[in-house]
Design a protein around this nucleic acid. Structure first.
Length: 1036
RNA sequence: GCCCGGGUGGUGAAAUGGUAGACACGAGGGACUUAAAAUCCCUUGACCUUUAUCGGUCGUGCAGGUUCGAGUCCCGUCCCGGGCACCA
């Protein structure tokens, strides 16, 4: 019986739905397992073959875990708020909810075709009010808490109010704004409600703050750094400016240390953890005061400059200071003698863009202020310079420069002839570069001379603290996260403003539903779109894309709960995500913010674990494989005429004279014949002006002009003879102006890539072509002729009559015409084949271009697998007792597939199933005892074929609830093994030995071999190693 | 510049210190067929030797090291991809 996936697959998909096969309960005697995919944003382009890679892998794992007796939660939903839908709404006026709904429907359909075991009754959508009600609720909780250092967790803001009213903020160690003043209880208590509320904002975990943001007035929105490319918006290319705006901000910095430490407790890819570590950017160092030793005007400045350093141990090498030119302090430090230099430099740097400043990092620029500071360690006077390699925005905007240890400081010192003092006995070649080594012992460093790094740092910090000159300090790169978007399509922020104080809605008033607006643009006065909503009295900005995704994994546990974001029973049952899979592009966005929210929810006692996802795997991106076609330019026709017509047909006459290698010459003619005054001009029929101009010029030159239209050449492109004949007739004629009277219908010519090596690159335009009308890089002409892109086109084919395309690997996207829809693959080969082929491509963590070469291998395998069960039209599985060989094949396969699923090596699983199938077909095995376990083994990969065969084997229940077979070592044993024999590390032969042979016997047997004696060449072996089950190794 | 990954046949890849290239694609040859498709069988890292077998040399970016034995571990180096970037 033939294997027909198009018949069996839809049947079983319906059966699964009808039987609620994938519906999961929050209970049961089984252990739980929670497998989560990063949910997709439903874009208008639909699902492409890259999306399901991770879903297939997780589905295989989910089905496997279920077969192993786990209660598996494997849900799917949609991150359905976002900018693309809003952009589309702006263009078309259509409500984003409508387009989002359409996209969602398409995604559901496409996902439905692949046979996933998702429990769709648990689907969530972040744009659904029933969902974002709880996003808003969590926002309110964040507002109502502050971070207490002593408790090292978030505490209710009411606690803080109590403490303020009793003892002010003196004893409070909490995360707050930098500019928070000290207040007494008396002050707090006399404050008005409004004053108290404003003060509390300095402590709340989410608060309205002033932040520099990337403001794009054209989009009416603030953009994240990665939405800005080269100073303009990635989407639309609009200008972007740095602007100080009132924004809701999340005090994620409060959690910096815990987010960093938590990384050590989770099984995530090292690269993701490393990116998060870099993003958090903890640097442990010291801050120090350099007293200013200058004739400062009385009362100006604090009298010292504070610096932060991660290398306090290098302080004795600090021979000068550098401060950022933007700092106000520069004015006071500048002496009269230096004033004009300094002013000039400041003027020059302010005119330089960020990009320029980054571009020439090699050349040190800067100016001496004329003032000095005292190095607190050795009391030496060091000059204070300004230079733009020091950034005002980082730390204090001042550095102690240690030219022997820091390359930028070294460059600067070398350029301006400042002293370079070695501080470590291990530093080398200080005349050519800095040496930042921490190895060795200190020199020229008084107090720490002779110490090593680990001794020097605490010694110095202790000394600085005793003297009041500095202290140990930890600094983070992490900034608080801006949480407002001046956009429409996002969660409304549940806040009302009154007298500059935000009040949040009561829980009972949630959800605050997104109102209707007439347009999705900012107002004329630059307010966000929500300002257009009638009667809207709430906050005008909405939440960012990462709001809903920061907690959605809990909603799946209890998706329809109207009273809580997720019930306690559900949280207690599912605990956390056991296995999370998604793209590494979310490394520091989603994955850091969701960890932050989870820590907060943990502090509130709402979730059972500090980290929500124990294990994370990144699936590699499936890239697109774009195809390109080449459209002829005028230049191409000129070169074609020369190469294919004039040279072959007229050279022998010696009668032509070409205007030279520059085909683009405008004044003279493209080709001129020495005889009969004939000149030829090649141009488009559309260029009537040009033709007229040339005609007049030919007339005055006394030349006879022949005009060949690109378009007529296009039609005759495969008949150079005909064109030659035309020219021959023109040569022979006496007419002054020869031009085709017929008007050609072809407008464009596309030239096969295989022919292009003869032509110059400027002769053609390279264009993307839809990969769906290309097969094996050859354009399918029937399909191409029907395509819009090739209307009124002709093709120049190669000698084999083919139009070949070139290709490149690019991101898969609609604009590159390289999107492959999984539906098409499923329709052609079946869902099981599609699933297994995606896995067979290679390790899921690797990025790879989509290429269906090789899909026939998987397709053929499934047919072979199927055919084991049939003899003609009959199901032929028997109850005979299997042979040892058959059992060995089966149990080897069980072992390998089981091991490989556990380590997510899905590609090799497919290989092992292929091997077992090939072997069993060789043995002509059709025995139930072998084939039935094999059906269970294939079930996670090809659920449809497995379900079909499972039922044909006589079962009524789904194969999903079968028991995963366990391999029996007994059947893997063989009586003998072929041992490789290595002599001096080289493989020289093999020997068949009994499995249970003793070392002595094995050695003797090996030495008895003729081939071994040959290599020994009469010598005695120095050593023989027998590694049971592996190898025999002989050294001579 | 710094931090992560990764370099293996014509291609996708496999090999968790023990026979490098499993499995598959592609290619070549053959069987079946009126023919084609489908299917099945054989060969397929490079080179040398041989009628063929047998056999040998080289081979996992490059160059070293550890080891009886290295694609795998260590040191150096080059190249490719990703991330961060005058971050003190």
């Amino acid at each position: 019986m033939e294997y027909r996936p198009s018949e069996i697959e839809p049947t079983w998909r319906k059966w699964w739905i009808d039987n609620n096969t994938y519906k999961i309960e929050n209970q049961g005697g089984k252990p739980k397992y929670y497998i989560l995919d990063m949910f997709p944003y439903p874009s208008g382009a639909g699902l492409h073959v890259g999306h399901p890679l991770g879903y297939i892998a997780s589905d295989i794992l989910a089905r496997y875990k279920r077969l192993r007796g786990f209660n598996v939660l494997h849900p799917m939903g949609f991150d359905s708020f976002g900018l693309p839908a809003e952009q589309y709404a702006i263009q078309t006026g259509q409500h984003p909810a409508i387009t989002t709904e359409q996209n969602l429907t398409r995604y559901r359909e496409q996902l439905g075709n692949i046979g996933f075991s998702f429990d769709w009754s648990r689907e969530v959508r972040t744009s659904d009010p029933d969902f974002y009600k709880w996003t808003q609720w969590i926002f309110i909780q964040l507002f109502n808490h502050y971070y207490d250092h002593d408790a090292d967790k978030a505490l209710p803001i009411s606690e803080l109010e109590k403490r303020f009213s009793v003892s002010g903020n003196a004893g409070v160690r909490a995360v707050c704004d930098d500019d928070t003043p000290a207040i007494s209880a008396a002050q707090w208590n006399v404050w008005s409600e409004q004053e108290q509320q404003l003060f509390l904002l300095k402590y709340r975990i989410t608060f309205p703050g002033e932040e520099y943001v990337n403001w794009c007035s054209a989009l009416g929105s603030v953009l994240s750094n990665d939405e800005v490319k080269d100073g303009v918006s990635e989407r639309g290319g609009h200008p972007v400016e740095r602007k100080l705006m009132k924004q809701w901000v999340m005090r994620i910095t409060a959690y910096a240390d815990r987010l960093l430490e938590g990384l050590n407790t989770i099984d995530w890819p090292e690269s993701i953890k490393e990116q998060q570590r870099n993003w958090i950017g903890k640097s442990v160092g010291a801050s120090m005061k350099f007293t200013i030793d200058a004739p400062l005007p009385v009362g100006e400045g604090s009298g010292f400059i504070e610096v932060f350093t991660t290398r306090v141990d290098t302080i004795y090498g600090a021979t000068f200071m550098v401060i950022a030119p933007e700092l106000d302090l520069v004015k006071t430090l500048t002496t009269d003698a230096q004033r004009s230099d300094v002013d000039g430099y400041i003027k020059w740097t302010s005119g330089r863009s960020e990009i320029e400043r980054m571009a020439d990092t090699r050349k040190a620029t800067g100016v001496f202020t004329g003032s000095y500071a005292i190095n607190p360690a050795n009391g030496e006077r060091v000059p204070i310079w300004i230079a733009d390699y020091v950034l005002a925005g980082y730390g204090t905007g001042a550095v102690m420069a240690v030219p022997s240890g820091d390359q930028r400081d070294w460059n600067f010192a070398t350029a301006f002839n400042l002293p370079i003092v070695p501080i470590m006995d291990s530093q080398k070649d200080l005349d050519t570069a800095a040496d930042p080594s921490k190895e060795g012992r200190y020199i020229n460093s008084e107090r720490i001379n002779g110490m090593i790094y680990a001794e020097a740092v605490p010694t110095l910090i202790q000394w600085l603290e005793e003297k009041g000159l500095g202290r140990g300090k930890t600094q983070y790169k992490l900034r608080n996260a801006v949480f407002s978007r001046q956009r429409y399509w996002g969660e409304p922020v549940p806040a009302i403003w009154e007298d500059g104080v935000p009040t949040l809605l009561d829980e009972k008033e949630l959800p605050l539903v997104l109102p209707s607006v007439d347009k999705y643009l900012p107002t004329e006065t630059g307010e966000p779109p929500l300002a257009r909503a009638k009667g809207w009295k709430y906050e005008l900005s909405t939440m960012p894309g990462w709001a809903g995704s920061s907690w959605y994994f809990y909603r799946y546990m209890d998706p329809h709960n109207e009273h809580e974001f997720c019930s306690k029973e559900a949280r207690d049952y599912w605990q956390k995500v056991d296995f999370y899979i998604g793209g590494s592009e979310h490394a520091v966005g989603h994955l850091l913010y969701s960890r932050f929210w989870n820590h907060f929810l943990y502090d509130m006692g709402l979730v059972p674990h500090r980290e929500f996802a124990q294990k994370l795997v990144n699936q590699g991106m499936i890239q697109g494989r774009s195809n390109f076609v080449y459209r002829a330019k005028e230049r191409f026709f000129e070169e074609y005429l020369w190469l294919k017509v004039l040279q072959p047909y007229f050279n022998e006459e010696g009668a032509i004279n070409i205007s030279g290698p520059d085909f683009e010459e405008e004044i003279t003619y493209d080709f001129a014949f020495a005889t009969n005054n004939l000149v030829i001009e090649v141009t488009s029929i559309k260029q009537m002006d040009k033709i007229e101009r040339i005609r007049r010029s030919a007339l005055s030159d006394g030349k006879r002009l022949m005009v060949l239209y690109n378009e007529e050449l296009t039609e005759q492109i495969n008949e150079p003879d005909a064109i030659a004949e035309k020219i021959r007739r023109a040569l022979a004629s006496r007419e002054d102006y020869i031009v085709s009277s017929e008007s050609p219908t072809s407008e464009q010519l596309f030239v096969s890539h295989s022919l292009l090596y003869k032509y110059s690159p400027e002769a053609v335009t390279k264009l993307h072509v839809d990969v769906n009308i290309v097969e094996d890089d050859v354009l399918v002409l029937e399909k191409a002729r029907a395509a819009q892109q090739f209307a009124n086109s002709n093709f120049k084919l190669d000698a084999e009559g083919k139009y070949t395309c070139s290709w490149e690997v690019e991101k898969m996207s609609k604009s590159k015409f390289n999107v492959v829809n999984p539906d098409d693959i499923v329709a052609e080969h079946g869902a099981d084949c599609f699933r297994m082929f995606e896995m067979f491509l290679g390790p899921i963590t690797d990025a790879k271009p989509w290429n269906t070469k090789g899909i026939s291998g998987v397709s053929g395998f499934l047919r072979k697998f199927w055919s084991m069960f049939f003899e003609g039209e009959n199901f032929r599985v028997t109850d005979e007792t299997p042979t040892r060989d058959e059992l060995r094949v089966l149990h080897t396969c069980i072992k390998k597939v089981t091991d490989d699923i556990e380590r997510m090596s899905m590609n090799t699983c497919v290989s092992h199933l292929m091997i077992a199938t090939n072997d069993l077909r060789g043995l002509k095995c059709a025995k139930r005892a072998v084939l039935e376990p094999l059906v269970i083994l294939i079930a996670p990969f090809g659920p449809h074929i497995a379900e079909e065969l499972w039922h044909r084997l006589g079962h009524n229940m789904s194969v999903c609830d079968a028991a995963w077979p366990i391999h029996n070592e007994e059947f893997l044993k063989t009586d003998s093994k072929e041992y490789p024999i290595q002599i001096n590390g080289k493989l020289r032969g093999t020997i068949e030995l009994p499995t249970d042979i003793s070392a002595a016997d094995a050695e003797a047997a090996a030495l008895g071999l003729e081939l071994v004696q040959k290599w020994l060449n009469g010598k005695m072996p120095q050593k023989i190693r027998f590694i049971p089950g592996k190898i025999i190794s002989i050294s001579v």
